[in-house]
C-alpha cells in the first residue's frame, strides 16, 4: 500500500518534476508544495509535521455527499465528522481547505447546512467548487451559488493567490452534453486564458475541479471533454498541480511538469475503472469502510523544492 504508482514514475526523473504520494487508508492527502511541485512528505504528525512547519499546508477534501444514506455508508455526515476531527487534531494547522465538490448528495438546503456546520468546526476557510450533486436543486445551481459563489464568475469559477501560489477553481459539471464528459465551456476557458495572461511561468499553479480534467476512464464519464484546452493554457508554467475528486479513489499521474491527483471521498468508495458493472457506490465490509475514505494534505515549501502530498484515510 505504501508503494504507489507515483513511486514507479520517480525512477529517472528529477525530484522537482515528480509528485510523490504516500497513501494511507483513511483520512486525506497532505500536499507539500516545494518550489511549486507537490510531493508527499509522510504521515501526518511525523515527517510531514517536521517539514511542513517551514512551508505552508492546505488540505484537499472531497465528495462529502452529505445526505447519502445508502448501504455503502448509511452515515456520510458521521464520516465527515470523523475526517474533520482528524483535521482538528493535526499538529500543523493547515492554511485552508480546498473542497473538490459533491458537498451534498441532492443539493438540499439541510444537506448544505449540515456540511457547513461540520466544516465550520475546522475554523478554516474552505475554497469550494461544485460537483454535479451540488447543482441539482430546482434552479440548477442557484442553491450552490447563493452560498459559495460570492466573487466567483459564471457557474462558480474563480482564482486567488496564497503564499506565491496561484490557485484556480474550475467548474466542469454544468451544461453537460449527451454522450459527453465533464465540460468547462468557452466562457470559462476564455476567463482562464485572461486569468493566466501576464503571469510568470515560474508561478506555481494549483488548479482544482470536481471531475478530473484529463480523461481517466471515458466509459464511466471520468474526464472532461475540453479539459485538454485548459491544460494547454497551463503548459508553459513550470509547476502545475491538478486536484480533482469525483471518482472516490486515489489516482495520480505525472506528465512533464503537471501532476494530477484525485482525492478520496469522505462518504463512500467507488470501484476501480472497469472493475464493476457501474461506477456506483462500492459496498465494502463495514470494518473496511474507513480505510477507503479520507482526505489529502498538501504542503507548499518556500524555495526550489517540490510540493508534498499526503493521503490519509479515516482508518489511520
Amino acid at each position: 500500500m505504501a508503494k504507489t504508482a507515483a513511486d514507479d514514475q520517480i525512477k529517472g526523473v528529477g525530484r522537482r518534476d515528480v509528485l510523490e504520494c504516500m497513501v494511507w487508508a483513511g483520512t486525506g492527502v497532505l500536499w507539500t508544495v516545494s518550489g511549486g511541485v507537490p510531493h508527499s512528505i509522510g504521515l501526518i504528525g511525523e515527517a510531514a509535521a517536521a517539514e511542513a512547519v517551514s512551508g505552508f499546508t492546505f488540505l484537499q477534501m472531497s465528495d462529502s455527499h452529505i445526505g447519502f444514506d445508502k448501504a455503502a455508508n448509511p452515515d456520510a455526515l458521521g464520516t465527515l465528522r470523523e475526517a474533520v476531527a482528524k483535521v482538528k487534531a493535526m499538529p500543523v494547522k493547515p492554511s485552508f481547505i480546498i473542497h473538490t465538490g459533491d458537498i451534498t448528495h441532492l443539493s438540499r438546503p439541510a444537506e448544505f447546512d449540515n456540511a457547513d456546520k461540520v466544516f465550520g468546526e475546522t475554523g478554516l476557510q474552505v475554497h469550494w467548487v461544485p460537483g454535479e450533486h451540488d447543482i441539482i436543486d430546482e434552479d440548477r445551481g442557484k442553491a450552490y451559488l447563493d452560498r459559495y459563489g460570492k466573487g466567483a464568475k459564471g457557474a462558480g469559477w474563480y482564482s486567488y493567490d496564497d503564499h506565491g501560489v496561484h490557485f484556480i477553481g474550475l467548474v466542469n459539471v454544468v451544461d453537460l452534453k449527451a454522450g459527453g464528459l465533464g465540460n468547462l465551456g468557452a466562457e470559462q476557458l476564455a476567463w482562464l486564458e485572461a486569468d493566466l495572461k501576464g503571469r510568470s511561468n515560474s508561478t506555481p499553479i494549483v488548479v482544482f475541479s470536481h471531475i478530473p480534467l484529463y480523461v481517466l476512464y471515458r466509459e464511466w464519464g471520468w474526464g472532461t471533454d475540453d479539459g485538454q484546452r485548459a491544460l494547454d493554457l497551463l503548459k508553459r508554467f513550470g509547476s502545475v498541480t491538478v486536484l480533482n475528486g469525483h471518482i472516490h479513489q486515489l489516482a495520480q499521474k505525472v506528465e512533464g511538469k503537471m501532476t494530477f491527483h484525485t482525492a478520496l471521498s469522505t462518504a463512500f468508495p467507488q470501484p476501480a475503472p472497469g472493475s464493476a458493472p457501474s461506477p456506483g457506490p462500492m459496498l465494502v465490509p463495514a470494518d473496511q469502510l474507513r480505510s477507503k475514505l479520507g482526505l489529502s494534505t498538501v504542503t507548499v515549501m518556500q524555495g526550489n523544492k517540490p510540493l508534498a502530498i499526503i493521503d490519509k484515510t479515516l482508518a489511520g
Binding site: L106, S107, E132, H133, I136, L176, A178, G180, L181
Partner: peptide, 28 residues
C-alpha cells in the same frame, strides 16, 4: 428533476418522432 433511488419521472409523447435523451449528471 433529480431522481433519487426509486423516484420516477413520466412524460407523455403526443406526436411521432425520435427523441434522444441522456442523464444530465452522467451524460455517458
Amino acid at each position: 428533476k433529480a431522481l433519487d433511488t426509486d423516484d420516477s419521472y413520466s412524460f407523455t409523447f403526443t406526436g411521432p418522432g425520435t427523441f434522444s435523451y441522456f442523464c444530465g449528471l452522467h451524460p455517458q
